[in-house]
């Protein structure tokens, strides 16, 4: 089974939905591109418009779920899937004016334990602002620094033997066991399996120190490593 992200519309304002998805795609392009999604909604919304907004962000819609969307699904060739049975995770950050997806955390259905990763990718150069690295289906090891404005993404773990001043996104295909390790923790953003935190939320005693990031009960935890 593929890891699936459930997107729940909390508004029928298609422009707002589109705007939020676009901003998310801009922030985490490597993650959003090709992300598999199931559409849900809390308010009546035009499925056709909702669908095209989500698709234009680069996500792949594999079905819908919930009574409000069921009726139109068949006409659009989409299967109706059962509701998520996992306990709903609280959205991180303030949910803005009824928006989609919940402002910070697309709810990822816990994936079945992924097959052990055999591949890994090693990078020995600094990752500069504006650069983006994606280790698909692999761990990512960087023996240099990740500069401000740079983005490193891996489906597995991310190890940075230098400063993390940019963005690091581990478990990009939904692996909630993935972790981020770095020698100096000053990130703009960290994310694991779709749950993310930005610099503003990351002021702690670990700032500037060796640290690791992991998910515990659906919440991001940062821990010092020294």
């Amino acid at each position: 089974m593929l890891p699936v992200t459930r997107i729940n519309a909390t508004t029928d304002d298609l422009a707002a939905i589109q705007a939020q998805l676009e901003s998310m795609a801009r922030q985490m392009p490597a993650m959003v591109q090709g992300m598999t999604a199931v559409l849900e909604t809390s308010v009546p919304v035009s499925l056709a418009g909702y669908l095209s907004a989500v698709r234009s962000s680069g996500m792949k819609v594999v079905g819908v779920s919930g009574a409000l969307l069921e009726a139109d699904a068949a006409g659009l060739g989409l299967p109706v899937l059962p509701a998520d049975t996992g306990a709903a995770k609280p959205a991180r950050g303030a949910a803005q004016t009824a928006s989609v997806p919940q402002s910070a955390a697309p709810e990822t259905v816990p994936a079945p334990a992924p097959a052990a990763r055999t591949s890994s990718r090693l990078i020995a150069d600094p990752i500069r602002g504006g650069q983006q690295i994606y280790a698909r289906g692999a761990d990512l090891t960087i023996t240099h620094q990740v500069g401000a404005g740079a983005e490193v993404v891996a489906d597995g773990n991310i190890h940075i033997y230098g400063r993390l001043a940019g963005r690091a996104i581990a478990g990009a295909d939904g692996d909630t066991q993935a972790r981020i390790f770095c020698r100096r923790f000053e990130p703009e953003l960290v994310a694991i399996a779709g749950v993310y935190a930005v610099a503003e939320q990351l002021h702690g005693e670990w700032l500037g120190k060796p640290a690791q990031v992991f998910l515990q009960d659906g919440t991001l935890k940062v821990e010092r490593l020294d």
Binding site: P126, G129, G130, G147
Partner: peptide, 8 residues
């Protein structure tokens, strides 16, 4: 920062 970007 801009120099870092240019180095990239």
């Amino acid at each position: 920062r801009d120099s870092d970007r240019v180095l990239g």
